[in-house]
Design a protein around this nucleic acid. Structure first.
Ligand code: FES
Ligand code: FES
Lengths: 153, 153
DNA sequence: TTATTAAAAGACCTTTTTGTCTTTTAATAA
DNA sequence: TTATTAAAAGACAAAAAGGTCTTTTAATAA
């Protein structure tokens, strides 16, 4: 439903929202290490997000990535749109041509409410609001294995 | 979330449930045309489903694919498991290591109820019951574009 | 103005997914 | 028993996704 690229982009942009500002810019390296995402791959994604005006960057010493005031008003759906395009998220779960209540697939009425909830969250909150919610509710923002002990009995 | 392969397999198996029995076996060709799936690709998938004992086949004249009585008691989750493995469907929407209420990602509590609903449907209904529901509610079972007029204004 | 720093650009590589084609095997009907 | 039919098997091929590496550009601090 979401590509890895989109997932990386979302998590990393939210990390920026939490930890950067115009004064404190952040390198790809720091983010890649914290989110646990391949460094050069994230660099590529960030180039694309800069071109898409989702995030900002400056080169040189103390350069790095950050969110401008305009960037902060973007939402998660803008990120997904920039990386995957919206169709991937919006299309029918079973692959039918249209996801549509008048011609529904066998799971449409299970999928539709979920998609509505998700879209509401991804569209109606700005990046900054979303990041704030993450801080408030202490949800996770890293691909690191936070509980490796469960894996090795 | 689901691969194309899984989607094809699910739709085609449900088609078998609706249209075949031990007496009337169905060729890949007929299904591929009706579901609108690439013929040789579906043939490969069906080989795998036969090995996984999800569907049955016989060669020769009037041969083809069908569901045995045992096959009819399988469920959609068995198909997904056979083709994709369950992790793909079950994993965290944002890609975190564990999808888990104690270490949730930012959208976990939106995703979890959806996954529960979906799993219930895919696990608690047999293939035959699922196919019956599709007939009862007239939901769609084809990847064909059923409403092309919307596309060309 | 020069060295340093960090992103930008783009070529390149690998793996997975998706899809095709040809040959072989098995069932059966004539 | 032979021709026919349809799946099984497996080698191939194309495209997309995922990931890496090297060189260039721009900013700035010394
Ligand atoms: S029609 Fe399949 S999810 Fe809406
Ligand atoms: S933790 Fe992400 S969906 Fe459950």
């Amino acid at each position: 439903m979401l590509s890895n690229a989109s997932k990386y982009a979302i998590l990393s942009t939210l990390y920026l929202a939490q930890h950067s500002n115009e004064q404190r810019k952040i390198s790809v390296k720091e983010i890649a290490e914290n989110i646990d995402v391949p460094n050069p791959f994230l660099a590529k994604l960030f180039q694309q997000l800069v071109r898409g005006k989702i995030i900002s960057s400056t080169k040189g010493p103390h350069g790095g990535f950050y969110l401008s005031e305009r960037n902060k008003k973007k939402n998660v759906l803008d990120i997904i749109d920039n990386i995957d395009g919206l169709n991937k998220l919006n299309g029918c779960f079973m692959g039918l041509h249209e996801c549509d209540s008048t011609n529904p697939c066998p799971v449409h009425f299970i999928v539709e409410p979920f998609k509505n909830n998700l879209f509401t969250k991804f569209r109606d909150l700005t990046i900054i609001e979303f990041a704030q919610e993450i801080s408030d509710f202490n949800t996770l923002l890293t691909l690191k294995n936070v509980n490796p002990s469960f894996k090795t009995p």
